[in-house]
């Protein structure tokens, strides 16, 4: 059987270093399997967050050879095993220990976004009518498994650390799902422009590239939101109207 080396970052919020672990590689293995094998064989206290192991829960996000990935969906046969495989925690969030990061900021951001506010029901039995095509536009965004890889790769968060004025791709997708839901009546344009920093996104599409659910984040969510902001807040004609009205 083949063996491969995994260069895993070990440490905590005060610092750390890479350590090499060699383990046996068998057919069909994914990176998370290798990490678990290392944990069972030679590093019982190696910290790794995981859950479903099928790409559905978004817990095992990390950087594999520098690429933001779900460890459970990254097969070893897609990597060059002649070189050590580097596995390290996401960079956009504080490290807790080893491969585990503190993603609590994301949960706080979500609380700030206006909740779903449906129009009155369409039918007497309290239900609504919606066409499948309308449902599908929103369903694309609702596929999101909250792995936060898009947040990790976004330079506004990763490099510029603007967590306090920018909510990141995940929450633009979340906002878009609400804004484009045909039943929703709330308006989030002001916050998107002023508090959530949609303008900081310069459409490099890094988020779209790393999304394990293949959500077209930039084109389908962020750009339409930017357009809404422009139409509503910066369109010269409606601006003029606002001036007259006030």
């Amino acid at each position: 059987m083949a063996r491969a080396t995994f260069r895993i970052w070990r440490g905590n919020d005060e610092g750390g270093d890479y350590q090499d672990y060699t383990t046996e590689v068998t057919e069909g293995m994914v990176v998370l399997d290798a990490v678990h094998q290392v944990q069972a064989e030679s590093a019982n206290d190696l910290a790794v967050r995981w859950n479903c192991k099928a790409g559905k829960c978004g817990s095992c996000s990390a950087e594999v050879n520098g690429h933001p990935k779900l460890m459970c969906m990254t097969r070893l046969n897609s990597l060059n095993l002649d070189e050590p495989v580097t596995i390290e925690p996401m960079k956009a969030f504080p490290t807790v220990r080893d491969l585990v990061t503190d993603v609590s900021w994301n949960y706080e951001v979500k609380k700030r976004i206006k909740p779903f506010t449906p129009r009155p029901p369409d039918a007497e039995d309290g239900t609504w009518r919606m066409q499948q095509s309308d449902a599908e536009r929103v369903q694309e965004f609702r596929k999101c498994i909250e792995c936060f890889l898009c947040q990790d790769v976004c330079h506004v968060l990763r490099d510029h650390r603007l967590h306090h004025e920018f909510i990141g791709p995940r929450f633009f997708v979340y906002s878009a799902a609400l804004e484009m839901n045909p039943l929703d009546t709330a308006d989030r344009t002001e916050e998107l422009a002023n508090d959530f920093g949609v303008g900081y996104c310069n459409i490099t599409k890094c988020c779209t590239k790393v999304c394990p659910e293949e959500i077209t984040i930039t084109d389908n969510a962020i750009i339409p939101l930017k357009e809404r902001v422009v139409d509503k807040l910066y369109d010269p004609l409606s601006r003029l109207l606002r001036v007259f009205r006030s």
Binding site: P115, F116, P118, P121, D125, G126, T127, W128, R129, M130, Q131, Q132, A135, V138, Q139, R142, L178, N181, D184
Partner: peptide, 20 residues
Amino acid sequence: VRELEAWGAVFDRTRDGRIL
């Protein structure tokens, strides 16, 4: 189930727009 829709769940639809 209907309550979930009122809270924002987006189910697949029948041709006449109800929950499939």
